[in-house]
Design a protein around this nucleic acid. Structure first.
Length: 658
RNA sequence: GCCGGCGUAGCUCAGUGGCAGAGCGAGGGUCUCAUAAUCCCUAGGCCGUGGGUUCGAUUCCCCCCGCCGGCACCA
């Protein structure tokens, strides 16, 4: 017996540095929609999600909470899993990176890479961003992380390296042979040019971190978080015994655009090194922006899924996320747009159509779907339109063009409204001819509604199930096979189920207020009685800035800062951010580079007195020697530099700051 | 600085070498089966600016302006 075709897809293994927000929800909604769609197309589908639980962040958060790491992450994982279940997004496999089978898979993958000669031991010194769990290439001590803007830390350690450099050619060949591997295409081009620019070997173990998967026989080495987390996709479906289950290689990794490189460069390289099959496709979607800026905790514009689901229903959120933007691009999120879509598309559109159709059948035929006995040109036109829409919708689902698929479905909904308005079944009398016409029109309306229900089911699982029941149809809508879907299948005579409100219309302002109030409550829970337990995951997430380590006066005395006066300033060709300055520090005139070109005009700086670190080792930036450092505050999320200065009182050039 | 994308009706966006489109919002009208829903009509928009190719460009090419993304870079 030939088995069903298989389809394996994943969301990222989310890092547990807070609770899921709309961004995580978006990825998972997409994954869930694809899963439902593929099942309706006859596939055996496995969808994996999970929690990434290792690393310095977790170590610190647990310490802060005063509980062991294992306890901390268990709590986190439980919360994530529970929320996904609550939202109807529970995956088939939920991997925790602390699960034993996963630990074994990571160790096994490492062994394979090593046996094949792609692992060696070396020393690494670099700047590390503990929040992003990544070394920042070429960053200097004191630099901020280019991604998140937080300070980096200098880390030197002996560790194992992965010969990523050996995979430049194989990866480029692979991208060429599999042009659809990276989607959308714009991302693919970016990655190709990144890889063409050369790949450096990658450090994949750490000795400075305790909370991680141990490298067998090489303690205290633990695995680098990405080597660990990416492997979860494989451990979810069998790990070393992946062949038994037959789900690997994955058909689709869904990721946010911020982590595409890990999935399209590192991950396939690891697998190639281990001689394992490489996933078939990685899809990078965009972000939902709030007022066109990236959502972030520090800006206080985090959108949570639960309040929306409570107010409008999870289907409404799913619909909005998939309908509002072209998949792959960034989009704007606003409660206003959400509620507007809800009222116009769901309440006035689909909800109202279901309601009026059911009411007409109820009143005219006692709730029994009548039999169509005629086929006028307008009836045939309607059927043809629906038939065409079926093809269009399926094609768009297949390409993950959710917005277009939904657009096509809603085009059919509009046609149904128009059809009913034109045919006016309520105005027909009781003559035999009128009865036949009435029956035909209502049968057509019901049939259209059935097809719409099937087509919309992957996106609106809960509400389409309600319509299915309303139409008195057998089985569940989820079990309908999309490949056989066509106009004219159901037998008449079905008794309608009880009418249910699908999408009750809401007052926009009131709805927004209620959602915001619920979100507020979730983000800022009333302080618990005992502060000792306040360091819950949510609390840890809300405090991304860890207190810096304390230093003694002696340490501070090592830094020699003096008042300097800028003598000349010019831009450096080929560098957006750098200015070349000459600065009088009393004893001499120094050349210093400063990354402030985007915010300060060179001409206006001349004569200005600034604070300068004068005993910093010289280094070259963009080929220009820099002999010291100008002190500036980093303001706002983008770290805009604001020069430290002495505006109120005049100071002597060369005076020491202490 | 290098590479790429974008700039079309109030908003979100489609689109094609030859009379400029959709959805939403707004205004007017209509029906009453329906969730004050539906349906019909209404936006006269220099299709970013300036050139070029062409019988003809919003659509092809070049410059410029603005916005965005990737890389580099940010002591």
């Amino acid at each position: 017996m030939p088995g069903k075709p298989k389809f394996y897809l994943t969301t990222p293994i989310y890092y547990t540095n807070g609770l899921p927000h709309i961004g995580h929800t978006y990825t998972t909604v997409v994954a869930d929609t694809i899963r439902r769609y593929k099942r309706m197309r006859g596939y055996e589908v496995v969808m994996t999600t999970g929690t990434d639980e290792h690393g310095v962040n977790v170590e610190r958060a647990a310490k802060k909470a005063g509980i062991p790491e294992s306890e901390f992450v268990a709590k986190m994982a439980a919360e994530w899993r529970a929320l996904w279940e609550e939202l109807g997004l529970g995956a088939d496999e939920f991997v925790r990176t602390t699960d034993l089978p996963h630990v074994r898979t990571v160790q096994w993958l490492f062994r394979l890479c090593r046996e094949n000669g792609y692992v060696y031991k070396g020393n690494y010194t670099g700047q590390y961003c503990i929040y992003d769990n990544a070394f920042v290439n070429d960053a200097k001590p004191g630099d901020n992380c280019p991604d998140c803007g937080r300070p980096t830390e200098t880390i030197t350690e002996e560790n194992y390296f992965f010969k990523l450099s050996a995979f430049q050619r194989p990866l480029l060949d692979f991208y060429k042979k599999n042009p659809d591997f990276i989607q959308p295409e714009s991302r693919r081009n970016e990655i190709v040019s990144f890889v063409e620019g050369g790949l450096k070997d990658l450090s994949i173990t750490r000795t400075t971190i305790r909370w991680g998967i141990p490298v067998p026989g090489e303690e205290p080495h633990v695995f680098y978080v990405w080597f660990d987390a990416l492997t979860a996709y494989l451990s979810a479906v069998g790990g070393p015994e992946f062949e038994k289950r037959g789900m690997w290689p994955a058909d689709l990794h869904l990721v946010g655009k911020d982590i595409i490189r890990f999935h399209t460069v590192y991950w396939p390289a690891f697998l190639m090194a281990a001689m394992l099959p490489v996933p078939k496709q990685v899809w990078a979607h965009g972000w939902f922006l709030m007022d066109a800026t990236k959502m972030s905790k520090s800006k206080g514009n985090v959108v949570l899924p639960r309040p929306i689901a409570n107010m409008l229903g999870m289907d409404a959120l799913r619909y909005f996320l998939l309908r509002e933007v072209v998949f792959g691009q960034d989009g704007n999120f606003s409660y206003d747009a959400l509620v507007t879509r809800y009222n116009s598309d769901l309440a006035n559109g689909l909800g109202n159509l279901a309601s009026r159709t059911a009411a007409l059948i109820e009143k005219n035929f006692g709730g029994k779907i009548p039999k169509a006995t005629e086929c006028k040109p307008q009836d045939e036109a309607l059927a043809k339109e629906v038939q065409a829409a079926i093809g269009e919708v399926l094609e768009n689902y297949e390409n993950l063009s959710f917005a277009r698929a939904l657009e096509a479905i809603w085009g059919v909904v509009a046609s149904a409204d128009k059809y009913l308005t034109t045919e006016q079944p309520w105005a027909l009398g009781n003559s035999e001819k009128d009865q036949a016409r009435k029956a035909t029109v209502l049968w057509n309306a019901a049939e259209l509604l059935r097809i719409v229900t099937v087509l919309a089911h992957p996106v609106l699982p809960a509400s389409t199930a309600k319509v299915w029941t309303l139409l008195g149809l057998p089985g569940s809508v989820a079990s309908v096979e999309l490949d056989g879907l066509q106009w004219g299948q159901p037998a008449p005579g079905k008794q309608l189920g009880p009418a249910q409100p699908l999408f009750p219309r809401v007052d926009k302002n009131e709805a927004i207020e209620r959602i915001e109030a619920m979100a507020n409550e979730e983000l800022n829970p009333a302080p618990p009685a005992k502060p000792a337990v306040s360091a819950t995951p949510a609390g840890a997430a809300a405090a991304p800035q860890t207190a810096p380590e304390k230093i003694g006066i002696d340490d501070f005395a090592k830094v020699e800062m003096r008042v300097g006066q800028i003598k000349t300033a010019e831009r450096i060709v080929g560098a957006d951010k750098l200015l070349k300055l000459t600065v009088d520090i009393g004893t001499e005139i120094r050349q210093i580079c400063a990354g402030i070109a985007q915010y300060y005009d060179p001409e206006k700086l001349i004569g200005r007195k600034v604070a300068v670190v004068v005993n910093l080792a010289p280094r070259k930036l963009r080929g220009v020697e820099s002999n010291g450092m100008i002190i500036a505050a980093a303001v706002g999320p983008e770290g805009r530099p604001v020069l430290a200065g002495f505006p109120d009182e005049d100071v002597e050039v060369g005076a020491r700051l202490k």
